Simulated scan of single mutants.
Amino acid sequence: MSELWERWQRAIADELPAAIELRHRVHADPRGSGDEEDTARVVAEALGAGEGIRVAKTGRAIPLPGKGDGPAVALRAELDALPVLERTGVGWASDSELMHACGHDVHLAALVAVCRAAVRIGVPRPILAVLQPREETSPSGALDVVESGVLAEYGVDAVIGAHVQPRLANGVVSAVPGPVNASTDEFEVVMHGQGGHAGYPHLLRDPILALSQLVVSLQQLASRRVDPVFGAVCSIGRIQAGTAANVVPNQASAFGSLRLMRAQDRERALDGLGEIVHGTAQAHGCTAELRVSPCEPVLHNDPALAVGAQRWLVRGQSDVDIDFRSFGADDFAHYCTGGGDEGTRGLMMFVGLGDTAGAPSLHDERFLPADDAVARVANALVAGYLAALGPAGA
């Protein structure tokens, strides 16, 4: 298998110039979640293996043959961009109000380089290239791929993904067994009070005051309701209230997310969310509505895949991290349901871009990985594929 690794690396090196050109093309012409048809077509054409199978409405699953008949290995990359106005200044920047600010353009280019190289050299097991839509929104594109049955149809045993990560040093790849990304539930709180003239607060029930207290009190979910060894994050991303400085409105709304690293903490945290929302409202003479929208489960890496990938990454002279976890969420979690009849094993790796103070983060208008990240993501995907072959391939 060492010979296969080396041959694959040489073939990927030959594919990189075209893959980087593809990255620039995709980056310059992004598509939002649910509107990825054009991006899927361009990437499918670059793979040179036909249109494949349409999945999740705007996605593709493209089968590539292997020399043997064992279980297929799926390699996944995301198609969608974000509603961000780009400010990178490169000649191939997007001129729309969409931007590949999460590295999906890099992931797609790496997937193409890996798959084209695999076809050239011949690999032991079939590959299913999954061009997945709607990673950035809910409902999940990954869940739709799973429910389409395409993974089972092609005998997929393992799904491999790799994501660029600016919080890891350049040259580091993280392959961690167990939970690596948090679950997420989005929620909306509508606080109902009694509005009126701001100069007569004693006659009112101020929903903005109640909501302000609620935003602070919700931090109890992380600090007092969940074991701090495992942690939780409750964040408010949007507040909406009022029309004038001297008018107290009748209602105020807040929108946020609750993130957890253990599935068993979710029910307790959601119960606590309800208690705090309604208790805070009552304390201020208000009432509240709470609406919760489940989004993604915990992303749980298969331990055997993670350990196997670590070995191949070391052989490829990558620095391997075995500790990095993030309270970001990724719908890749839907591929990590277990092996055999229960579903597929999953492995998500994180590829470092350089943990530099002040560097743009994911989803930032200035976020722009260097082109050499394509090769490093490609190497991680190869390591995941070889890990899926099992100890015999080590």
Rank of each mutant, 00 (worst) to 15 (best):
H163I: 03
P177V: 08
P126I: 03
D185L: 13
N181G: 06
G178T: 13
P126A: 10
P139W: 02
L168E: 14
L143G: 09
A142E: 01
N181C: 10
V172S: 13
T184K: 15
L151D: 04
I127D: 10
P179D: 06
P179V: 01
V180A: 14
C115A: 15
A182Q: 12
A169R: 13
D185R: 12
V114S: 00
V114M: 08
S138W: 02
V150Y: 01
L131A: 05
G171E: 14
G171M: 14
P179S: 12
R125C: 00
P139D: 11
V164Q: 05
R167I: 07
I127Y: 08
A162F: 02
T137V: 13
A118G: 15
L151F: 01
E153V: 00
D185A: 13
R134V: 03
A117H: 07
E153Q: 15
G178I: 09
P124W: 02
L131K: 00
P166T: 02
E136R: 03
I127T: 07
V123L: 12
E135V: 01
V114K: 10
V145S: 05
H163M: 05
A129Q: 12
L128N: 11
I160M: 07
V180W: 08
G155D: 11
V130W: 01
C115W: 07
E153R: 09
P166S: 03
P179Y: 02
A158W: 02
G171Q: 14
L131G: 05
